[in-house]
């Protein structure tokens, strides 16, 4: 088991190294030289060009040899220095990201975990029930085919504008300041409902379809047939099928993480929810490259940590992996 996790951890470390290198390479070696392009936008102001040129030379360390630039990039990273944001000048990028991160997590985590739990149950429930299946499957397919943010727009329009049930912008009312009072928490949850539900519902469809297909497959397997011939009850057979079908679903969760994170980033934009996605879009619209690069690194770091947690979870629920690496099988 330890061997398995060490192997995974090494892959993730290499991935992180790779990601940081991409983050360093792209602004420097992209065709068309983006830094020159940035400077050229100020060409009408010769005085500004000089200032900006020296700023970028210093910020990117362009006056030093390449290998030194690369090492400096790593050194700065370990100090937690991701540069200064241009859009929110003069705040450091690391601080801007740290402030938005909780908002992203508080929507993303419950949505992922709950949709995984509920979606799997739903999928297992409808599998092999002809009528229910024919009714539920198109709904699941529509949900999973919708772009996350479009589903957010749909909910915002239906529940926010047509029926006026929920607020559709921000994480709390403008008149409030964050505090641990009941009034604030209620207000916060009220704003949280729509972004959460749009993520939750789109993901739900995907998990339900995956589970339905897996259960159908498992119910055809020899062990299910054998149990059936022994006269075991349907619910017992289904319980065994579920335990086997959940394993590929957990692997699927790891594979889907990237898409899910991307979905939550775009959904934040729809609801002006002040998480990573929202500031990332501001960074893009304002050509704030340090902010974009910082967000990139943070997203990847988050996905890597989540992947590792899923690996640990997988070892816990699948005894075969645990045993195969300790040589008991």
């Amino acid at each position: 088991m330890r061997k398995y996790l060490t192997k995974k951890a090494i892959i993730y470390l290499i991935t992180f190294f790779f990601a940081v290198t991409i983050d360093w390479v792209i602004p420097r070696f992209m065709p068309g030289n983006p830094i020159h392009f940035l400077i050229s936008r100020f060409a009408t102001l010769p005085e500004a060009v000089k200032v900006i040129q020296s700023y970028f030379t210093q910020a990117f360390g362009l006056d030093k040899p390449l290998h030194e630039q690369y090492l400096n990039f790593w050194r700065a990273l370990f100090r937690g220095d991701l540069g200064i944001s241009i859009y929110l000048y003069p705040q450091p990028v690391a601080k801007v990201i740290a402030r938005s991160l909780p908002y992203t997590l508080i929507v993303l985590l419950p949505a992922v975990l709950l949709s995984f739990a509920v979606g799997n149950r739903l999928g297992a429930f409808v599998a092999k029930k002809r009528k229910l299946d024919n009714f539920a499957l198109p709904i699941f397919y529509t949900l999973t085919a919708a772009p996350y943010f479009w589903f957010g727009i749909l909910l915002a329009w239906l529940l926010g504008v047509v029926f006026r049930l929920f607020p559709i912008a921000g994480a709390y009312s403008f008149a409030m300041t964050p505090s641990f009072s009941w009034r604030f928490i209620v207000n916060f949850l009220y704003h949280w409902v729509l972004p959460f539900s749009s993520l939750f519902l789109v993901m739900l469809g995907g998990w339900a379809i995956g589970m339905r297909n897996m259960i159908i497959y498992e119910l055809e397997a020899n062990y299910s047939r054998y149990l059936e011939s022994l006269g075991a009850s349907q619910s017992l057979i289904r319980r065994y099928a579920y335990r086997n079908a959940i394993l590929p679903q957990v692997t699927g969760l790891a594979i889907q993480l990237g898409t899910v994170v991307a979905g939550s980033l775009t959904t934040e934009i729809v609801f002006s929810y002040p998480g990573i996605g929202y500031i990332l879009m501001q960074g893009i619209l304002n050509q704030d490259y340090f902010l974009i690069q910082g967000c990139f690194l943070f997203i990847i770091l988050g996905v890597l940590i989540a992947n590792f947690l899923i690996d640990i979870f997988y070892v816990i629920i699948d005894p075969r992996i645990r045993k195969s690496y300790t040589g008991e099988v």
């Binding site: 991935t15 993480l257 974009i292 990139f296 990847i300």
Partner: peptide, 9 residues
């Protein structure tokens, strides 16, 4: 492991 959208961005 690297999210496609992050890489695309």
């Amino acid at each position: 492991v690297i999210p496609t959208l992050a890489l695309l961005i």
